[in-house]
Design a protein around this nucleic acid. Structure first.
Lengths: 115, 115
DNA sequence: CGGTATCCTCAGCGATACTG
DNA sequence: CAGTATCGCTGAGGATACCG
């Protein structure tokens, strides 16, 4: 995804949009928010057909944006746990409202809202 | 954008996600929600570097998903006005919360939230 | 004015293989 | 287990030209 701008020339919203609207990002946040902290492998299983590459990329981006926190326990084998920060939790709240709306519309209008 | 799934095999959230997470969609909804109904040309100017092709595509998709309404006045030259439906307004509310959060974080932490 | 119709590019993602 | 490294492809979207 290249850019989702909401104003010019520098839009404070761009960053969050970029972060959130990339493929899988919202889903990752939603899982971490709904199920709590998860390790890399659990997360991957939970998101099913996601590739390791993409999952790693998204997690790094979200960490950079301080939406989640990465905690490493350097055992063998290593354990890496991801959890939402306060920012991430706030975003999760918004995403969840989207989910609530979508579910409501699905049950109200089983056939007219989408092709 | 291909798929943003949040569950398998059929997820009611997919439709809205698809719709909203496509490039420019959120921005379009945000403009229509904040400024009210707009004609095609106004919208295009407001979104600046968007191409006619993409704008048309997004508008059609959002209309299909009944997030917005398309009203044609067949004068010469024609007038086509787009406005949010109830669904669209609900989505706009959610998007706006995202904008509020983003602005808040921008002013709080001018340098640590994004690269 | 409000669109279609083409063409083309490129970056985002998946698949696969390998590593500390 | 939790990644990194390559490679290759696909399709979303931009540029451009034209139309009722």
């Amino acid at each position: 995804m290249k850019e989702i701008r909401t104003e010019q020339p520098h839009c404070p919203v761009d960053g969050v949009m970029h972060l959130l609207f990339a493929k899988w990002s919202a889903h990752i946040i939603w899982v971490l928010g709904a199920e709590g902290a998860q390790r890399f492998g659990e997360l991957k299983r939970r998101l099913d057909p996601i590739s390791t590459k993409t999952l790693t990329e998204r997690l790094r981006e979200l960490e950079m944006g301080t939406l989640l926190h990465r905690e490493v326990v350097a055992t063998i084998p290593p354990q890496v746990t991801y959890s939402l920060t306060a920012k991430g939790t706030a975003i999760h709240g918004v995403v969840d409202q989207l989910v609530v709306l979508a579910n409501k519309w699905e049950s109200e209008t089983p056939n007219d809202s989408m092709q």
